[in-house]
Write a protein that binds this DNA or RNA. Sequence first.
DNA 1: AAACTTATGTTAAATGCTTTACAAAAGGTT
DNA 2: AACCTTTTGTAAAGCATTTAACATAAGTTT
Lengths: 380, 380
Amino acid sequence: MVLSSSARVISAFNGHPTLTRQEIQDVTGLSRVTVSQVVQELLDEKILIEADLLPSNGGRKANALAVNPKHGFVGICYFSATALTVAVTDLAGEIKEKRRDMNLIEEGPKKALPKATEWLQEALKGIPKSKLLGIVIGVPGPVEHKTGSVINPPIMRGWDGVNIQEHFKNTFKVPVFLENDVNLMVIAEHRLVYPEIENLIFVKMSTGIGSGLIIDGRLYRGSQGSAGDIGHVQLDALKGLPCRCGHHDCVESFSSGWALIEKLKGLGYDVKTVSDLVTLTRTGDVEVTRLLNEAAGYIGHAVADAVNLLNPTKVVIQGRIAEASDRVLATIKEVVYQRASALASKNLEIVPSKLDEDRGVNGAAQLGIEEFFFSNRSNA
Amino acid sequence: MVLSSSARVISAFNGHPTLTRQEIQDVTGLSRVTVSQVVQELLDEKILIEADLLPSNGGRKANALAVNPKHGFVGICYFSATALTVAVTDLAGEIKEKRRDMNLIEEGPKKALPKATEWLQEALKGIPKSKLLGIVIGVPGPVEHKTGSVINPPIMRGWDGVNIQEHFKNTFKVPVFLENDVNLMVIAEHRLVYPEIENLIFVKMSTGIGSGLIIDGRLYRGSQGSAGDIGHVQLDALKGLPCRCGHHDCVESFSSGWALIEKLKGLGYDVKTVSDLVTLTRTGDVEVTRLLNEAAGYIGHAVADAVNLLNPTKVVIQGRIAEASDRVLATIKEVVYQRASALASKNLEIVPSKLDEDRGVNGAAQLGIEEFFFSNRSNA
DNA sequence: AAACTTATGTTAAATGCTTTACAAAAGGTT
DNA sequence: AACCTTTTGTAAAGCATTTAACATAAGTTT
């Protein structure tokens, strides 16, 4: 597809928060005459705005330009395992509205979807209809993009096959994108923290265990959207442990929040939630610490396998289990550096997430901006 | 980068062996006037040729065009673990010259490189210098692309850090591309057999075990070029088996040709090479069959993990160990379908390679054509 | 044979972009 | 103040490509 000049200029800002007119020439390959003219048009249309005057390089200061954050907005419904977050962000990815409530997912789609749309409508009150570019929905399960539904979700009982995308599309009459929650997290971590890293694995250890993959700079979803399913790598060392996925010996059947809780219950501990587990860990209980370390070791095995196979330069470890104790990350590092091949671990860094709890919403915003604004060349 | 019209027309043929003028319009987006004019130029320059007249659709027959196979040639040196194959292919990927000799790699780069260049020079005798587009070198070890050398190769003693690319570049004064052997195989299998498949894993079980990954339609090399290292996934079930990579419990330390040979030697069998092993298998020896099945099972574990992580639609199993008995592929299938998640295995097919022993050379030809002809826009 | 269909060629006018050349704006240096 | 540098604007000429319109080639259908 051949893009118009104005579309090319706009696209140049994808990945570059600000650009001077000269930098736009370099990125787009357009001539100064064209850039000058197109930028003026885009300023008139308020698609671009003038940002800072940059420090002089011995001559006239360059004038940094940016996409006008208020030129469009993205609606977000982020269903995590334990909460629904509804948000609205602008084109700079800044969260303008946010509302968070507990556990709508368990009530099933019949109750949760109307509630979610209602909240989103409220959150969008201040936004002109024409400026709503689209909606991103995050869900804690495998997503089938061609239908816009979740398939075989382990923790979304009653949601299997429900056309979530259609529901929002019918209500809001804008493009809707459904995406897995961990995929949104890895997008956030990549775009906002490590944009220059080509290959990155994001591992989330919470109630369940999942991962998201950035490969050659782009989110990799796999053929059925189930790529990154690191939680169900099977370890023979576990010998016979049943997993909630129906198999046995999955990493998740030992190292996940739910598995640890089951195990501790069996040992007579009073733990019901991951929060209980984290609290217990903070007390320094010897048995809990031992179990947590063992769990980290097994995750380490799975991560080492993934590192051998994918040879990334960065692995980000996140989640309430990972953050329960510093030992978790340390143990994972030990195991990976011991097990992964010398070549694959040479330039590898294993780090905690640098983002806060809004990372899912941030990732949804990024995805929405890229999908609805930068890819959809109706802005011209 | 903005390509010239003629470059765009040429690029259209990448992935399409033949195109009519109308199809070129569709693929490039260029107008009929431009296509008509550019095609005429390219025919005059003998870069394109007229291929068949297609069957009529109720009117004038369309005239299929193709890249002139004789417009350029690719030189190939393919070092496998056991042999060197020197070849020359044309732009259609057809092998015009081929010479194969045993085991130069073990003699080290000082002897092997001059020999390889000498043979390649002989193979290129009939080709005008200006038509040699470039040279592709295949090697059985991890490749560092930015230097053009192998790093930490387990089976290329004395080659570590030797700048192979530079050697050929100095001799032939053309672009040279160094690539891992299994990566070349997966390119061949993808481009020639399954071009429409987006995500594919190629597993080679021979003396060693390796794999190549096609992700979103393109070869994935990883950050250090070591992606696909499935042979050194570690299985705890193996408990303490040392591997030649320095670690222990790698799949390769049990399921590879060398590991099986070691094991059989320990049991008193007279096996020295993988060929001996294959011969022995054909006799139907119970112990050997049992060991081979066990080996297949372990490979199956590693493949299942890779399937969970990458969610491909096709896994190709190849190599002399894989082909030693039908049971090997059958066992791998059983294990993968049992262990991989329901979603990831839903549309998954596990198949043997459809190509013959020239697959490495074929892949090198494909890579060379794409790198030197379709990407290098000096043809304009 | 006449009529229709599909594939391709060609001409002329219009469009969009680049190149070239000249200018101006806005800073720093001496 | 005089002179340099960097950044941006703009007008004129040229080039490549598209659009539109007409034409031709080569087949099928009736």
